[in-house]
Deep mutational scan, measured.
Amino acid sequence: RLHIEVEGTELMKKLVEEAKRRNLNVRAKVENGKWIIEID
């Protein structure tokens, strides 16, 4: 499991799109103003 903290929506969208393209499980949520992304 990969755990990433990202500031900025554009970067988050790119990460999520790339993960979906590779058929990975992606969860994204906002915590303290940062995107928290978990990829399995």
Rank of each mutant, 00 (worst) to 15 (best):
E38L: 10
D40W: 15
L11S: 08
N23K: 12
W35D: 00
E18H: 09
E10F: 08
K14F: 12
E38V: 13
E5T: 12
G33L: 04
L24P: 02
R27N: 10
N23L: 07
V26K: 00
E10N: 06
E5H: 08
E17K: 11
E5V: 15
E17Y: 11
E7W: 15
E10D: 11
A19N: 01
R22Q: 12
K13S: 07
A28V: 15
E38F: 10
E38W: 12
L2W: 15
R22N: 12
V26D: 00
W35Y: 05
K13Y: 11
N32M: 04
E7Q: 11
E17I: 09
N25H: 13
I37V: 07
L24W: 09
E17V: 06
E17Q: 13
E31M: 11
M12D: 00
K14D: 04
H3V: 15
R1E: 07
E17A: 14
K13P: 01
W35Q: 00
K29I: 11
R27K: 11
V26L: 04
I37L: 06
G8H: 12
V16Y: 08
E5D: 06
W35V: 04
K14R: 12
R22V: 07
A28S: 06
K13Q: 12
R27F: 12
E7L: 14
T9H: 11
G33R: 01
E38S: 09
A28K: 03
E10Q: 09
K34E: 02
H3Y: 14
E38R: 04
H3R: 15
E31A: 10
R21N: 08
K14W: 14
G33H: 04
R1C: 15
R22P: 01
A19Q: 01
L2K: 05
L24V: 06
E31P: 00
G33K: 03
L15T: 02
R1A: 13
K20R: 14
A19K: 01
K14S: 07
A28F: 13
R22S: 06
K20Q: 08
A28M: 13
I39M: 05
L15Y: 10
I37A: 01
T9Q: 09
K13R: 13
E7I: 14
N32L: 05
N32F: 05
R21Y: 05
R21P: 01
G8D: 15
L2Y: 14
K13G: 04
K14G: 04
K29G: 04
M12R: 02
I39S: 02
E7D: 11
N25M: 10
I4E: 03
V30D: 05
E18T: 05
W35H: 02
K20G: 04
E10L: 11
V6D: 02
N32K: 05
K29H: 15
D40K: 06
E31S: 08
A19W: 10
L11W: 11
R1M: 14
L2D: 06
L11Q: 13
I4H: 03
L11G: 05
K20H: 10
G8V: 07
H3K: 10
E31D: 06
R21F: 06
I39G: 01
R1V: 14
D40G: 13
L11K: 08
I37D: 00
L24Y: 07
E5I: 15
V26H: 02
V16S: 03
V30M: 15
V26Y: 07
R1T: 14
I37P: 00
V16Q: 03
D40F: 15
D40R: 09
E18D: 09
H3Q: 11
N25T: 12
K34M: 10
E5P: 05
V16D: 01
W35M: 03
E31V: 14
R1K: 13
E38I: 14
I39D: 01
R27I: 14
V30H: 15
W35R: 00
I37F: 01
L15H: 02
H3A: 06
I4S: 03
W35K: 00
K29L: 06
V6Y: 04
E17M: 12
G8M: 10
A28N: 02
K14N: 05
G8P: 04
R21D: 05
V30E: 15
L15F: 10
E31C: 11
V30Q: 15
V6I: 09
G8A: 12
K14E: 07
E7K: 12
G8E: 12
L15E: 01
E10T: 06
R21Q: 07
E5N: 05
D40S: 13
V26A: 03
W35P: 01
M12S: 02
L24Q: 06
N32V: 02
K29F: 15
E18K: 05
I39F: 07
I4L: 10
K13M: 14
G8R: 11
L24M: 08
I37M: 01
N32A: 07
D40E: 12
V16P: 00
K13T: 08
G33S: 03
E31N: 06
N23W: 07
L2P: 07
N25A: 11
K20P: 01
N25P: 08
N23D: 05
V16T: 03
I36W: 03
E31L: 12
I39K: 00
V26Q: 00
V26W: 09
K29Y: 15
H3M: 12
E18S: 08
N23E: 06
K34D: 03
K20T: 09
E17P: 00
I39P: 00
K13V: 10
N25D: 07
E7Y: 15
G8L: 13
L15K: 01
K29N: 05
I36T: 04
I37T: 01
D40I: 12
M12K: 02
N32E: 05
E18F: 11
L11D: 09
K13N: 08
E10M: 09
N32R: 05
L15I: 15
I39H: 01
L2I: 14
H3D: 08
T9M: 14
N32H: 08
I39L: 05
L2F: 14
I36Y: 06
A19H: 02
N25V: 13
E5Y: 11
E31Q: 12
V16L: 09
K20W: 09
E10A: 12
E10H: 08
E17H: 09
V30I: 14
V30P: 08
V30N: 14
V26N: 00
V26R: 00
W35E: 00
V30F: 15
I37H: 00
K14H: 07
R21W: 04
N23R: 09
G33D: 04
V30G: 04
D40N: 09
E38N: 04
T9F: 15
T9K: 10
V16A: 02
T9P: 10
I4D: 03
L24A: 04
R1S: 13
E31T: 07
H3N: 10
E17T: 07
I4W: 10
M12L: 06
N25E: 08
V26I: 05
T9Y: 15
K20L: 14
K29R: 14
A28H: 04
M12I: 07
L11Y: 08
E10G: 07
N23Q: 08
K34V: 12
T9N: 09
G33T: 01
K13A: 08
V26M: 02
E10K: 10
E5L: 11
R21T: 03
K34I: 13
V6T: 06
L24H: 06
I4T: 05
I36E: 02
L15V: 11
E7F: 14
L2S: 04
L15G: 01
N32W: 03
K34Y: 08
E31H: 12
R22G: 05
R1L: 14
V6S: 02
L2G: 06
E31K: 11
N32D: 08
M12Y: 06
E17D: 12
K29V: 10
I4G: 04
N32Y: 05
V30L: 15
R21G: 05
A19D: 00
W35A: 00
V16E: 02
T9L: 14
N32P: 01
K14I: 12
I4M: 07
A19E: 01
M12C: 15
E31G: 04
K14Q: 12
E18P: 00
W35F: 05
I4Q: 04
E7M: 12
L2E: 06
L11A: 13
A28P: 02
E10R: 09
G33M: 03
N23G: 15
V30C: 15
H3W: 14
I36Q: 03
I37K: 00
K13L: 14
L24S: 02
K20A: 07
